[in-house]
């Protein structure tokens, strides 16, 4: 189990901002290899920002993000794509693309200059197809898919990218409970195959069920960090989400579950009491 704890990604005094609004000031955070880490927190707490910065979709204002031995800024876009894949919140592609065409796009970083597919590339695409149970839909155009199917196709694209680390930005958003479980089981399977996984999640109960480690953000700071059991405490939840709640355990997995009770009153300046 020692290998599971090896640090992989390190945010060092990272400052991040969207335009003039500062999201993070001097964020220090270390993420471990081989774990499922879930970023949680209220809207606007910066969890997606932290994820995008790691994948270099956002430039850091100052500070350094290390991934493995190198700062991510030292790597080329393709080299970075080979290390980390990211499923964004609202990915889009033309409706007339077929499932196969879309999944093949995940291989971009591995292709030669003229975009020729090697045998290995084809194998990886086939692997992703079967892992996501998409064999029957290979030639379907993505405009004809249901929401759940489409999400599986995007996941397959990310899997085909074949990177040791996978980042997911709210992958279960807008999915029904069946597809949520399906997606998270798939993520777990990938983790068991040795991938490091970092997910932005809204649903605390789902996060607690599947995460090895949970991190709660609030106002650009880490408010709680640890195993689901350590993080899912009424005091943490009150501090971050401003609700009173009760924490229970489910009968099968013995993971913490949150039952929300009520919102705490707003203070005079219109903010929630923290």
């Amino acid at each position: 189990m020692d290998t599971k704890k090896a640090p992989l990604t390190r945010y060092e005094k990272v400052n991040l901002s969207y335009g003039s609004t500062i999201v993070f000031e001097a964020l220090n955070l270390t993420l471990n290899e081989g774990e499922i880490t879930m970023f949680c927190g209220p809207n606007g707490c910066g969890k997606s920002t932290a994820l995008k910065a790691l994948r270099r979709l956002l430039k850091v204002r100052s500070g350094i993000i290390f991934h493995g031995a190198n700062p991510i800024d030292d790597l080329s876009d393709k080299a970075l794509a080979k290390l980390m894949s990211l499923l964004t919140q609202k990915p889009s592609a033309p409706d007339d693309l077929t499932v196969e065409q879309l999944i093949k796009m995940g291989r971009f970083a591995h292709l030669g200059y003229l975009g020729h597919f090697s045998k290995k590339d084809k194998e990886k695409v086939a692997e992703a197809l079967s892992l996501c149970h998409l064999q029957n839909l290979v030639h379907e155009t993505i405009g004809n898919l249901s929401g759940g199917q489409l999400q599986r196709v995007w996941l397959a694209m990310i899997i085909a990218q074949d990177s040791p680390t996978i980042l997911l930005d709210e992958p279960t958003n807008h999915l029904d409970i069946t597809h949520q479980i399906e997606t998270l089981e798939l993520i777990k399977k990938l983790n068991e195959k040795g991938r490091t996984i970092i997910v932005v999640m809204h649903d605390l109960n789902m996060a607690a069920r599947y995460a090895d480690r949970m991190i709660l953000f609030k106002d650009g700071k880490v408010a709680a960090d640890g195993t689901p059991e350590e993080v899912m405490q009424p005091s943490n939840i009150r501090n971050v989400f401003n609700i009173d709640c009760e924490i229970m355990r489910d009968n099968i997995y013995q993971k913490p579950m949150l039952i929300p009770y009520k919102l705490r009153p707003y203070n005079d300046s219109g903010n929630l009491n923290g």
Binding site: K78, A81, S85, L87, P91, A93, A109, Y113, L114
Partner: peptide, 24 residues
């Protein structure tokens, strides 16, 4: 143009996803 052709394909994706798959 020929070197750009695989980027052309990748740009079918939205910009963030294209960047995430390794396109500059």
């Amino acid at each position: 143009m020929m070197l750009l052709s695989s980027s052309m394909k990748q740009l079918m994706l939205d910009e963030e996803s294209a960047q995430a798959t390794g396109l500059t």
